[in-house]
Amino acid sequence: MPYLQSFRGYPTVLNLFRNNNFDLGNGTQAVFGEISRLNHACVPNAQGNFNASLGSFTIHAVRPIEADEEITLSYLVEHGALSASRQSRLTDHYGFLCDCPACDMGSERGRKGEERRTRMQARLHEHAEGVAKRELPDLVAELEVMLEMVQMYEAEGIAGRELATMCLAVAELAAKVGRRDQVLEFSEKALRIDSDSVGTDSNLFHESLARVQAIGTSV
C-alpha cells in the first residue's frame, strides 16, 4: 500500500534532515537546497549563520578562498577538540570520517595542529584543577588561559564567530583586571571578525557590538 511505502522511507528522510539541517534559532531548523550541500572541514574557510534581519541563511568567507577551492563549513559546535573526539562526533552524527588537513596526522600540518590542541587541552585541565582548589576566582589566570586559546585558534587558522566570541570574553576579562590595551585590542578584533563572518547587517553582529559597548570602550 502507498502509505506503507512512505512509512518505510520515513527513517531515511529523517536521517537526511538531521544530517543536513541548520539551526535558525527559536527551535527552528531548516534544510537548504544549495547550502546543505557544503562539505565539512575542521578548519573551514566559510561560516554559515541565520541572519534574522534579512530572514535568510548566509554564508561568509572567514579567510580568502582560492579559485577552484571548495567552500567548507564546520559541522561541529567547537573547534578545539582533538582529532579522535572530532572524528567520533562526525561518525556518530553524520556517518563519515573527516580527511581535512587538520585531521591528516600523516602531514606536518595535522601533527602540529594536534600537538597545539593537546597542549591546550592539558592547559585547560590544569586551569580547571586550580579553579577547584581556589576559594575565590583568579581573573588574571582565567584571562591568561583565554589568551592562550585565542593564540591556538589563530595558529590553527580557525576564524569565525567562535573566535569572535572568545575575543569578546577576553575583552570583558581584561576590563575587569584593568588591562585597557587588551580591552581595545580584543574588542576591535571581535567586531572585525564578526563583521567578516556574519555581516554588519546581522543581529549577531549587533549583539557583539552591544557587548563591546557594555564594556565601556569606544571602537
Rank of each mutant, 00 (worst) to 15 (best):
residue 107 S to I: 09
residue 108 E to K: 05
residue 109 R to Q: 14
residue 109 R to I: 12
residue 109 R to L: 13
residue 110 G to M: 05
residue 110 G to T: 00
residue 110 G to V: 04
residue 111 R to I: 06
residue 111 R to V: 08
residue 111 R to A: 11
residue 112 K to H: 09
residue 112 K to R: 07
residue 112 K to N: 09
residue 114 E to C: 09
residue 114 E to G: 02
residue 114 E to A: 14
residue 114 E to D: 12
residue 115 E to Q: 09
residue 116 R to F: 12
residue 116 R to W: 10
residue 117 R to M: 10
residue 118 T to R: 13
residue 118 T to C: 09
residue 118 T to S: 15
residue 119 R to V: 07
residue 119 R to I: 01
residue 119 R to A: 13
residue 120 M to Q: 13
residue 121 Q to K: 14
residue 126 E to M: 08
residue 126 E to C: 00
residue 127 H to C: 09
residue 128 A to F: 06
residue 128 A to L: 11
residue 129 E to Y: 03
residue 129 E to Q: 15
residue 129 E to W: 00
residue 129 E to R: 14
residue 130 G to S: 04
residue 130 G to C: 13
residue 131 V to C: 11
residue 131 V to N: 05
residue 131 V to G: 03
residue 131 V to I: 12
residue 132 A to W: 03
residue 132 A to M: 14
residue 132 A to Q: 15
residue 134 R to H: 09
residue 134 R to T: 01
residue 135 E to P: 06
residue 135 E to I: 14
residue 136 L to Q: 15
residue 136 L to Y: 03
residue 136 L to V: 14
residue 137 P to F: 00
residue 138 D to C: 11
residue 138 D to A: 03
residue 139 L to W: 06
residue 140 V to S: 15
residue 140 V to N: 14
residue 141 A to E: 13
residue 141 A to Y: 11
residue 142 E to V: 03
residue 142 E to L: 03
residue 142 E to H: 07
residue 142 E to G: 15
residue 143 L to C: 10
residue 143 L to W: 10
residue 145 V to T: 14
residue 145 V to Y: 05
residue 146 M to Y: 06
residue 146 M to I: 04
residue 147 L to H: 01
residue 147 L to N: 05
residue 148 E to V: 05
residue 149 M to V: 10
residue 149 M to A: 04
residue 151 Q to L: 07
residue 151 Q to D: 12
residue 153 Y to A: 06
residue 153 Y to E: 07
residue 154 E to R: 13
residue 155 A to W: 00
residue 155 A to V: 06
residue 156 E to D: 09
residue 157 G to P: 04
residue 160 G to C: 04
residue 160 G to Q: 01
residue 162 E to V: 06
residue 162 E to D: 08
residue 163 L to G: 01
residue 163 L to K: 08
residue 163 L to M: 03
residue 164 A to Y: 04
residue 165 T to D: 10
residue 166 M to P: 00
residue 168 L to D: 02
residue 168 L to S: 01
residue 168 L to F: 05
residue 170 V to H: 00
residue 171 A to E: 11
residue 172 E to C: 03
residue 174 A to Y: 05
residue 175 A to F: 06
residue 175 A to P: 04
residue 175 A to S: 07
residue 175 A to I: 05
residue 176 K to E: 15
residue 176 K to T: 05
residue 176 K to R: 15
residue 177 V to K: 08
residue 178 G to Q: 11
residue 178 G to E: 09
residue 178 G to K: 03
residue 178 G to M: 08
residue 179 R to T: 02
residue 180 R to C: 11
residue 180 R to I: 13
residue 180 R to E: 13
residue 181 D to G: 12
residue 182 Q to S: 05
residue 182 Q to R: 13
residue 183 V to F: 02
residue 183 V to A: 02
residue 183 V to N: 04
residue 184 L to C: 10
residue 185 E to C: 07
residue 185 E to T: 13
residue 185 E to Q: 15
residue 185 E to K: 15
residue 187 S to W: 11
residue 187 S to A: 14
residue 189 K to D: 02
residue 189 K to L: 07
residue 190 A to Q: 06
